[in-house]
């Protein structure tokens, strides 16, 4: 469940910006966006094999979009949450060649948070049609009661 924080810290020694912390969620690693791929590579390969991407999603924190990569080691049953902050309308670098499971969630996240997708083999819109705003951003409101009532 909860991996050894020092071991993860050691595995990510080459990543300068990596900060390992234990929170209510579990073990979180925060990295800068430009070192994200390297951090995931270090976690996936080597003795700390985390071969499975459980989930990938974004959180609009008010200042930036946090992208959460939830990776899991099946042999030891441990989870690590790698987080990296992207600016609004920033660029989400695809990690599909590390984790093919990211293919659809990346498209979904980029679309619903208004990010551009780099390095993705099929960077089309996934869920909505053209012209629809990035709906999961906090700045995009839902319909008001009046709008719904006077439909």
């Amino acid at each position: 469940m909860l991996p050894d924080a020092t071991a993860i810290d050691k595995a990510l020694a080459a990543i300068g910006s990596a900060e390992v912390a234990t929170t209510t969620l579990g073990l979180e690693v925060r990295v800068e966006a430009d070192e994200l791929v390297a951090a995931l590579e270090a976690l996936k390969s080597g003795e700390h094999d985390f071969p499975m991407l459980v989930d990938l999603f974004g959180i609009d924190t008010g200042e930036a979009v946090d992208i959460v990569y939830h990776v899991r080691s099946l042999s030891r049953d441990e989870d690590v949450y790698v987080k990296c902050a992207l600016s609004y309308e920033g660029e989400l670098t695809s990690v599909w060649n590390l984790y093919p499971a990211a293919l659809l969630p990346e498209r979904e996240t980029a679309e619903l948070f208004g990010l551009t997708l780099a390095g993705h083999p099929n960077p089309k819109r996934l869920l909505t049609t053209d012209g629809i705003e990035p709906l999961l951003l906090k700045s995009v409101p839902i319909r008001t009661v009046e709008e719904v009532r006077d439909r």
Binding site: T128, I132, L135, R143
Partner: peptide, 12 residues
Amino acid sequence: GGPFRSYPNVVL
């Protein structure tokens, strides 16, 4: 639109 009526992507 039911329980999802307030989501802007849903047709009312």
